[in-house]
Amino acid sequence: MSTLHTVNKSPFETQTLLSCLNHCREGDAVLLIEDGIYGGIEGSALSEIVKESAAGVSLYVLNEDVKARGIDPGRLLGEVSGVDYEGFVDLVTQHDRTQSWL
């Protein structure tokens, strides 16, 4: 039994991503969408804490949102995988529930 969490806010604006990661359990997945994708950037002031908090959790970003914001996928954390909208759907169906961190 596992949960897909979605986060749509920049971690530089709100604590939502960290709160989400602090409530994840081993085997959960976190998908960063919309402004949430900024939480997946390597070399930021929050990169280390995101990596630490995400231990045991699979991190994803929505490719379309990354591209829209001009973020080169090479600048994302090594731990992060990209998915498109169909991949988003797969994550929803592969996990038992979806929790949107609004």
Binding site: M1, S2, T3, N22, H23, C24, R25, R97, T98, Q99, S100, W101, L102
Partner: peptide
Amino acid sequence: SRAEMAEIMAEQDVILSF
């Protein structure tokens, strides 16, 4: 506790966020 809250969340069928 936060850990208990995470457990409660993981037991649900439907989660509505506000």
